[in-house]
Every structure is written in C-alpha cells, then in structure tokens.
C-alpha cells in the first residue's frame, strides 16, 4: 500500500467505525430490530484482507458480523443501512436483516447466522471457480469459535484433498459470545489447527492493518496461484459486546483497556501522522466528512425508504415460473 492507499484504508476503517456506532444508536432508538453484531475493534481484518484481495471480483462469505465485509466488497452503505432498517431498498430487500447482507453483484455472497455454516459454502464456491477456470478465489471470514464446528474440520479436509482456491480468514477475537476461547478450545492458536489437514497457515496481528495486508497478500497470492487453500489467523478484539444484548461483562476492565490501546484506526493514523503523510487536522476533516455522509445521505435514505409490501411476503421462496415445475418441457 502506498501513502494514498493507506489514507484511503484509514478512511474506510474510520467509516466502518462510525457506521457501526450509528447502527448502535439507531438500534437504541429502536429504528433497527433483531440481532445486531457490530465490528468496532476488528476493522483492520476485513479491510486489510480485502485490500490484498480483489473486492467485487473474489467471492466473499462470512457470518453475522457482516456489514463491513459487504461494504468493502462494494456494497452501497445506503443499501446496508436500509437493510438494517428492514426496507425494500435494502440490499436483501428487507428479507435478510443485519445477519443476512447479500450483494451478489459485488460477489458478496452473504452473511449467515449459523456458526460455521459458511465454511462448506466457501469451499463449494471455490470448487465452482476451479471448474469454470476463473482467476477468482473464495474468501471465508469467520470467528475463532466457529472452528469448533464440524464444518471447520470437514471443510478444511475437503478443501485440502481437492486443492480448492479458498482462503479461510479466522478473526480471533478471543471469545465466542461470553466464552473465552481458552475455556472452549484445546488448541487456542487457531492457525495450528489447520496443519491437521495439511493446509498452509499463519498468524498475524489483526490490529495493525499493514501487517494484515502483508500477511493477506501472501495468503491471497498463494491461493490464487493454484497452490491450494490457506488459513490465516488474525489476532483481534471486539470493543463492544457480542451483540446488542450482550454487555461484555465477562471481560475484565484491564483486558478491554489493553486492547483499546491497540485500536486499528489509531495505530494507522498515528503511523501516518508520524511519517508526515497526514495531519490530525486531515483526520478531523475526514471524520467530519464521514459524519456528514452518514447523517445526510445514509440515514435519510434508510428512513425514507418504503417497507416491503405484505402482498410480496411469499416472493423469493421459490423460482418464479420455472418451466420444469408445471411440465410440458420437451
């Protein structure tokens, strides 16, 4: 990443932070319902990895903490917010919600709520890519706790046996809801678990986007060059509770403070200020601009969008007018 790239990703991370904080407010105001899992603290993971990959080209899939992954792939933040507001203009037409953001045009293949569910789906997309001879790769972002699902083991095994172009990104934030990883997991360094399946893997600091980018570049190049799957563990932390219904009380104040000192946005900002590529005034201006975009464009778009029509409740269950359903095809 050159200086301009770094300023851009700083803005993207700051945007992600402000976007998620605004979701929090909207949730408290009861404008957003359902489950809401926010991303503050982990911004360098999705943004750093996708910076090294090809957003909109590579196929990305993840869990329920999915807003920022979708936006980084190219999904319009207005459509994401409208989805959270359950509107017809939402990227999933108000049928999905926070956990089910989809933007297939930008190859963001969805957020899924079943922990571990996306593992095989990602490998399947990789299988399709391989069959069709494309140069895309499939990228699967999931948490540390997802690696205790059978799908992790089953999928890594198949991806390795069939040499599939799939990159597994583990965002290890040390918890699965309120259960600390060391209390649920025998081998807590997640990247070590991939060796059971003969899969190349590594671990890196998920708070420093330069390091995420460098590690992801190696991983992406490895997968894209046809050498098979790769597993990259990013050591990170979420600053808020697991979801809106979780205060995070199971974590010590000291631990939260320690990780607070390693804020991915602050790390990059300070580095750019130190090297003279950015001033704090630039940063403030950036923040203001983001605030204005969210308040003037994104929120009004979501608020003023129509809700889905009840008459269309049963649309999108099955294909419409599929010729093989009623018969008569010769």
């Amino acid at each position: 990443m050159n200086a301009a790239d770094k300023k851009r990703v700083l803005r993207e991370m700051l945007f992600a932070r402000r976007f998620e904080e605004r979701c929090y407010e909207a949730y408290v105001e009861r404008k957003i319902g359902g489950f809401l899992h926010l991303y503050p603290g982990q911004e360098a993971c999705a943004i750093g990895v996708m910076e090294a990959a090809r957003p909109g080209h590579d196929y990305v899939i993840t869990g329920y903490r999915d807003h920022i992954h979708a936006i980084k792939c190219g999904c319009d933040p207005k459509a994401v917010m409208a989805e959270l507001y359950a509107r017809e203009t939402g990227c999933s037409k108000g049928r999905g919600g926070s956990m089910h953001i989809f933007d297939v045009e930008h190859h963001f293949m969805g957020g899924y709520a079943l922990v571990g569910g996306p593992f095989p789906l990602a490998a399947g997309m990789a299988k399709a890519i391989k069959m069709k001879g494309g140069d895309e790769i499939a990228i699967c972002f999931l948490g540390d706790a997802a690696n205790n699902q059978g799908t992790f083991h089953e999928t890594l095994n198949m991806a390795s046996v069939w040499n599939l172009p799939v990159l597994f990104i583990c965002e290890n934030n040390l918890y699965g809801i309120g259960t600390a990883t060391h209390r649920s997991t025998a081998v807590t360094e997640q990247y070590k678990r991939a060796c059971s399946y003969g899969i190349e893997s590594s671990q890196t600091d998920g708070q420093d986007i330069d390091q995420v980018y460098a590690a992801a570049k190696v991983a992406v190049d490895f997968v894209r060059s046809g050498q098979g799957p790769y597993f990259l563990e990013l050591c990170t932390y979420r600053y808020r509770g697991h979801s809106m219904s979780d205060s995070g009380a199971y974590r010590t104040k000291e631990e939260v403070e320690e990780w607070g000192k390693r804020d991915p946005i602050v790390i990059l900002r300070d580095r750019l200020v130190e090297s003279g590529e950015l001033t704090l005034d630039d940063y403030q201006a950036m923040d203001k601009e983001i605030f204005a975009e969210i308040e003037n464009d994104i929120i009004p778009y979501a608020e003023n969008s129509p809700e889905p029509k009840v008459e269309e409740l049963e649309k999108y269950v099955l294909a419409e007018n599929d010729p093989y359903v009623k018969g008569g095809v010769r």
Binding site: C91, F102, G110, Y316
Partner: peptide
C-alpha cells in the same frame, strides 16, 4: 433465495 431478496 429468500434471505438474499432473490439474488442468490
């Protein structure tokens, strides 16, 4: 299909 609003 449903969750994606008919996209997938």
């Amino acid at each position: 299909r449903y969750m994606s609003g008919g996209q997938l």
